[in-house]
Design a protein around this nucleic acid. Structure first.
Lengths: 203, 203
DNA sequence: AAATAAATCGAACGTTCGTTCTAATATCGG
DNA sequence: CCGATATTAGAACGAACGTTCGATTTATTT
């Protein structure tokens, strides 16, 4: 488990420090979402954040840690929000709707972050990659269990595979989603809810 | 419409020339699929192809043209194969199966190419991007029409959106597909066929 | 107000990148 | 076998990259 400057900051109590750190992370999300991780230069991130080049290295030890911080924060929040929702629900169908709605709503409010999480999933390596992988696995397990509850018994469908198909539909959204055209997010939720509930029921 | 060295080659009749060109393209697919387009260096592509660095520039004018050639070849073949399949089918359901089967089968046989097409869709720009976009649009239209035929009348679902959900499930496969585990491709086809046919039927 | 710590800046480092150019080699028709 | 053409090899270019470092400014504490 790598000790990052981000985590060291949790010890500190300085308010300004976290403000700047978050503004850098937001700038990094924007630039990486646009140029890709390899294509995004630390210089452009710094410019977008209104900081000097070396200013970045006061808050992060290297470029990888920038991506790591974005992915860890985003996935952690996504998981926490989903857990919160699921804890208040009983019916399998309501839970599935919560999964879909949570993912889509979070996506719309954090387009850049989620794009960076989906598109740059393999851009990290080593300890950084492993730690993000753990959170992703937790998220996947949550979704898979909900899918399992919705699968009719004696069904041939593998819940893990169905979950992957669902993730595909959800994670592909950033490729075509346009806030001005697809403004009504509930339509997307309803659509996927319809397709996957009816689609996985026994005939 | 950009005139590429690839296209000039079509005029030439030298057999060795095309052999080398294709071996470079294959090497490029492998490297770009592994490192991403920005992360892939022309030097590594050259090394993988067993050619000197400047050898690449004898066959391609620049790095972008490498990506362009891969995407154009791949999408064109994908579209041609689908057209061929669809022309022999009448029933909407059979056509939808052909769409799914064609995409998955082609994917399994050309993992690197398809990964480069899906993951590096936004890495091109200008004329190169536009021309690939045209073929992608053609592919999308083919799929959308088949989806439309399978949608019950008086259905609320937008065929374009349903097609995008399907593309999501299909294009996400490269993130988890393992030839040793998911060797039986027909399972994936059957799964998606089941989910999407039942999922979009009127209740 | 002085002393200490936190935060920012600007310049510089070595490396790698995409691309170019010239010289050398291989191929092939006459 | 020669001359022209097609192909390869190697060195070099400027630009951009990630990262470092010492000096400088700002903020906090005594």
């Amino acid at each position: 488990m790598p000790v990052t400057k981000t985590e060291q900051a949790n010890i500190r109590r300085n308010r300004q420090y976290e403000k700047r750190l978050n503004s850098i992370l937001k700038a990094a999300s924007t630039v990486i979402a646009r140029d890709g991780y390899e294509g995004a230069s630390v210089r452009r991130v710094a410019a977008k954040a209104g900081v000097g080049l070396s200013g970045i290295y006061y808050y992060f030890t290297n470029k990888d840690e920038l991506l790591y911080a974005i992915q860890k924060n985003t996935f952690t929040t996504l998981v926490e929000l989903l857990k919160e929702r699921l804890s208040q629900l009983k019916k399998p169908e309501e839970k599935l709707r919560a999964v879909i709605e949570n993912h889509i709503e979070f996506f719309v409010n954090n387009i850049n972050d989620l794009k960076v999480c989906v598109h740059e999933i393999e851009s990290l390596s080593g300890a950084y990659y492993k730690e993000v992988l753990q959170i992703r696995r937790e998220y996947f397990r949550l979704v898979k269990d909900v899918v399992s509850e919705n699968l009719s018994k004696g069904q041939k469908l593998d819940p893990a595979l169905v979950s992957l198909y669902l993730f595909g539909s959800l994670n592909w959204i950033y490729m075509w989603y346009n806030p001005q055209i697809n403004s009504d997010v509930t339509v997307l939720t309803d659509n996927l809810m319809t397709i996957f509930t009816k689609g996985i029921k026994a005939t």
